[in-house]
Design a protein around this nucleic acid. Sequence first.
DNA 1: CATCGATGTTGAG
DNA 2: TCAACCTCGATGG
Length: 329
Amino acid sequence: MPEGHSVHRIARQFERNIVGRTVAASSPQGRFVEGAEVLDGREALEVRAVAKQMFLRFDGDVWLRVHLGMYGAWDFSGDVSVDATIASSNGRMGQTNQRGTVVDDAIMDAAGENSLSSIGAPRRARVRMSEQTTGLEEQTEWPPPPVGAVRLRLLTETTCADLRGPTACVLQTPDEVQATIAKLGPDPLVDDLVEGAERFTATVKKKPTPIGLLLMDQAVVSGIGNVYRAEILFRARQNPHTPGRDVPEEVVRGIWRDWARLLPVGVETGQMMTMDDLDPAAYRRAMARRADRHWVYHREGLPCRICGTAIVMEEAAGRKLYWCPNCQA
DNA sequence: CATCGATGTTGAG
DNA sequence: TCAACCTCGATGG
């Protein structure tokens, strides 16, 4: 489920609570027993996020590569440096709070004020990090009993990270990591922005593939998924069906710049905010309600926010593509 | 409570 | 092109 922003966000959580610590590794589900045995007792030294993949380096040049796929998630519990924005527009967290979770009022207040990147002190909490960050009910046992099919558990003295439902969870050598990353297109939070722009435009310029498909191709550009694709194309007023090589170069460069702007916003807010240039009231509305958050995504049949034309949905490569046939003519 | 669909990728045909 | 992977919130009865 997660697009690039979630993966960078999860990597940041690893940075705060796992990197620099020795882990006890296990596979409660049983599908990653051998890998867990290799990781067990090693120190996590570094985390990297590229596109929708996360790479965690352990001592001895052992890398863990994780791709959450459609419904993978990391559950953090114990001492978790919780983001101030963790609960924004998240009713569940409010409920959980009333039932006695330790996520305190300061965090809830900060969330209400929509402040960015304030890092709370580590505290007993339990969160699920997937597309969104969700508060979970507090567990009192330690270590917490695994919930559901936990492929991999990484346990430090104070923090437990449980991986569930990933598409990929494998150990890699440094060379393999290098090779994996080399196949990925530029990522605005990893690559130099100027260099990234050159790579992206050069690739798009020579492809007959529709731009709407190119944006979803992780070899072309890293981290864009179905939501960001629709939104970025709308923001560029670009028809999704135009072959990449026929899209004006200035538009292609504009798309890269826009992604480089939206991605960090997504990392900070934990949400795919694509209407960030609206007035403050509309911005607050968009933050509060998912239905108000996008220009075209998931708005089939609804009037375009700019011109009133009905938003169109069509299937493209098995994914739903939303766009305004008037604004993006 | 059952069913559906999803922010993704891979590999078979 | 499509099923499979495997999870869960949203939806409907």
